[in-house]
Design a protein around this nucleic acid. Sequence first.
DNA 1: ATGCCGGGCGAAGCCCGA
Length: 260
Amino acid sequence: MKIATFNVNSIKARVDTVLTWFTQAQPDVACLQEIKCENSAFPHLEFEALGYNCAVNGQKSYNGVALVSRYKIEDIREDLPGDDADDHARYIEGVVATKTRAVRVASLYVPNGNPPDTEKYPYKLKWLDRLISHAQALLDQEEPLVLGGDYNIIPEPDDVYEPQTWVNDALFKLETRRKLRQLLNLGLTDAFRACNAQPNHYSFWDYQAGAWQKDRGLRIDHLLLSPHAADRLQSCAISKKVRGWEKPSDHVPVWLELDL
DNA sequence: ATGCCGGGCGAAGCCCGA
């Protein structure tokens, strides 16, 4: 089963690019982030025409996440427990069931958190604490689980072009990286790092200052696996070429193959 | 230096992202 995560930076602006990628890459399941539209404006028909089902947690203008799957999507949850006052659409999970096996998949969009001296940064840290708690609850079920999304966290210095310039940024501050470490320490596996040891593989390049042309990127889109999923991991890669297409998102798809 | 680009909204220019 091929499972991908892709921050599309507006599904309305990106629908042609995203459908082209679906046609070429043929994912079985995709976690989309930053769809930036309400559920009613999501291009359901276009995905259904390609043979996919959609589960959408949308929001006007900002955020918004979705699951797109060749298989049925069941047991859908759209809220990340722990803060009833949080109205950002940043989380959706569901169980994707084939005839023989099931895997729980989440699409998540972690708050950016910049600038760190504003309320945006504690919101990011609190959101990550909620994710850690919920991930523990999911892990307790001992199922195959994939937590895919835009984590807005650079895990290690090897995951950014010039680490020293990022040390005070909300994506790379030690306090931020410690949250990802806590998440991994629950027993989750970073699928890309399990398959690729090489430095300087990125999933995001800023639109500004020629970041793409200079390969000044960040690896911030991740697929984290429960032990039951990690045992079945076949491969994981980043579709870097998509960043060079016409009208690209600033993120590219990251995908894996599970032997399910 | 805190803009550069690109999207949303809505119809000009500000907000936001990473």
